[in-house]
Amino acid sequence: GYSESFSGGPTVPELILQLLQLEPEEDQVRARILGCLQEPAKNRSDQPAAFGLLCRMADQTFISIVDWARRCMVFKELEVADQMSLLQNCWSELLVFDHIYRQIQYGKEGSILLVTGQEVELSTVAAQAGSLLHNLVLRAQELVLQLHALQLDRQEFVCLKFLILFSLDVKFLSNHSLVKDAQEKANAALLDYTLCHYPHCADKFQQLLLCLVEVRALSVQAKEYLYHKHLGNEMPRNNLLIEMLQARQT
C-alpha cells in the first residue's frame, strides 16, 4: 500500500506512514525518563552515582521501547510468549539503534546526547568511563558517521527499527505466518522507499541492511560490557537489562 502524494513527490509506503505515527515524541520520552530518574533509587548501592543513573536511564529507555513495541502493528496481535521471544532476541539492538539515531539527529562529533537531553563530551567519556565503555561509544560513533553519510532519514529509521523487532527466525515463534508476513512487508517497504526517494543511491537498501549487521555487533559488545559489570557486582539490583541478559533465549 502507498499513500497518495498530494505534492506530486514520491509516495511513502503505508507501512512506513503507520510506523511514523507510532513513533514516540522525543520530548515526551525525555520528560518521562527525567521524572523517573528524579525518584530516589529503590536499591541503594555502592556504584558511583553517575553509573547508577546511566543504568536506570538505560532501563527506562528500554521500557519506552517496550511501550513502542506494544503499540506496533502485528506485534500487538501476538501472544505474550511470542512478544517476549521477539524482544529477548533484539532488546540490545533496539537500545543501540535508539542511541545511534539520537546521535545522528544531534549531529555533533565531539560529544554524545543522552536520552535525558544531557550532552557528554567524548573527552569526558575517555577520562571517566573506562576503556570498555569508551571503545563501545567510539565504535557507535563510527556507525553514526556511516549512517549520516548514507543520509539515513526518519522514514528509514522507523522501518529499520521495525525490521530489528521482527528479526527473529520465525521457527522460534508460535505465530509464524504473521511474523514472516511482517518481515516481508517491512523489507519490501524499505526497498521501495529507498529506490523511490534515493534513486541516485541504488544500493542504499543493501547499505542500510549492512548497517544493521554492525548494530548487532555493537549490541553483542554492549552485552559483554554489561556482563562484565554484572560479574564485578557493579550493576544495581533489580536491573532490567541484567534480567534480559540472564534470561533464556526464546
Partner: peptide, 23 residues
C-alpha cells in the same frame, strides 16, 4: 512479585502482560 514463564524475564513479562498492565 510477578513471575514470568520459566527462564523468562519477569519484569518484561509484567510490562507485556495485558492483564497485569490493566491492574
Amino acid at each position: 512479585p510477578c513471575q514470568g514463564p520459566a527462564g523468562r524475564p519477569a519484569i518484561l513479562y509484567t510490562l507485556l502482560s495485558p492483564s497485569l498492565m490493566a491492574s
